[in-house]
Amino acid sequence: MCWADSDEFLLSPHAFGHPLYLVQTRQRGIGGIALMKVLRQRTDAGIVALSRRPQAELPAALDAGADIVLPLSAPAAHVLAAVRAVQRRCAQQSAQTVRAALPVDLPWTLQPEGHCLLTPDGTRVVLSASELVVMRILAQAPRHRVERRELLQQLWGEQAGEMDNALQAMLYRLRRRIEQASRWPAPVHAVARVGYEFRAPLKLA
């Protein structure tokens, strides 16, 4: 949807229901900087600003709520790339907001035979062999908490002393896989000076 100027936009009954806005800083009606301030007060949507003087207007536009500022003369491909980048950021923030609102006391299920972890709504997260070992240890540990050295020993035996970074990388990938596959926040967390824990009910199938 396109509006001729900011006055027409503000009088529209559907002005604030869009996921992203492309705003020229110089226009009829109230200025683009002021318009972006109004938008940011009413919505968390993405804002891409187009300016004839991008270097001069960059600080004011960002302070007003723009996610990115481009020259008005920018090629269409550059504008499209910026729009896609802002849309990705908005989608990530929306997913994080949904995850933050989900209850943390619903049970998760580990299915060793299927090499998978089931989220509370039944979403299936496929696990690697090493991830399955870690999840089984967490499921069987008191309070689902286990020391780092125990995980290292179970995974790599005599080479455990050299694999701390590998363990951290593996658990980071596991968290990412859970959150990419489902709407649930990953309950696997590091515990300072201890190890790792699963901060949700976890049962073995």
Rank of each mutant, 00 (worst) to 15 (best):
D67L: 09
R177S: 06
D67I: 11
Q92K: 11
A139Y: 11
E147M: 06
Q96E: 15
R176V: 14
A192W: 14
A160R: 02
W156T: 01
Q93F: 03
W184K: 05
I137M: 07
P142C: 01
Q111D: 15
A66G: 09
L151C: 05
S94T: 12
E179T: 15
A77R: 12
N165R: 09
D121W: 13
T97L: 11
A76Q: 07
Q111F: 09
L132M: 09
V146C: 06
H189R: 12
V79E: 02
D121A: 15
Q154E: 15
R177F: 02
T123G: 10
A166Y: 06
S94W: 10
G195Q: 08
A141K: 04
R177L: 04
A141N: 03
W184M: 08
V69Q: 00
S94Y: 10
V104Q: 12
L72Y: 09
L167V: 05
V146Y: 02
A181R: 06
L102C: 07
Q168T: 15
L152S: 02
V86H: 00
C90F: 00
P112C: 03
V134S: 01
T119W: 03
V133A: 06
A76P: 01
L110R: 02
R177Q: 06
T123R: 10
G157F: 10
A190L: 06
L171C: 05
W108Q: 03
Q140C: 08
S182H: 05
L80W: 08
A166I: 00
V104G: 08
Q96V: 13
A186S: 09
P107C: 13
Q168W: 11
S182E: 06
I137Y: 02
A169G: 07
G161R: 06
P71R: 01
A95R: 12
H189E: 14
R177M: 05
H78K: 07
D121C: 14
R145N: 12
V104Y: 07
Q180Y: 11
M170V: 14
P75I: 12
A181H: 04
P107S: 14
S73G: 11
A91G: 13
S130Y: 08
A74L: 08
L151H: 03
Y196I: 13
P112M: 00
D121H: 14
V98M: 05
H78N: 08
Q111I: 12
S94G: 11
V98P: 03
L152G: 03
E113T: 15
G195R: 09
G157W: 10
P142E: 03
R193F: 05
L106Q: 15
A77Q: 14
G122L: 04
A66N: 09
P112K: 00
R148H: 11
R84H: 08
L171Y: 04
A100D: 14
A100Q: 13
C116Q: 15
G195S: 05
G157H: 07
I137E: 05
E113F: 13
Y172F: 15
V194G: 10
P112R: 02
L127M: 04
Q180F: 10
L72H: 08
I137V: 11
P75L: 12
Q140A: 11
L80S: 07
E150A: 06
L102A: 07
P112H: 01
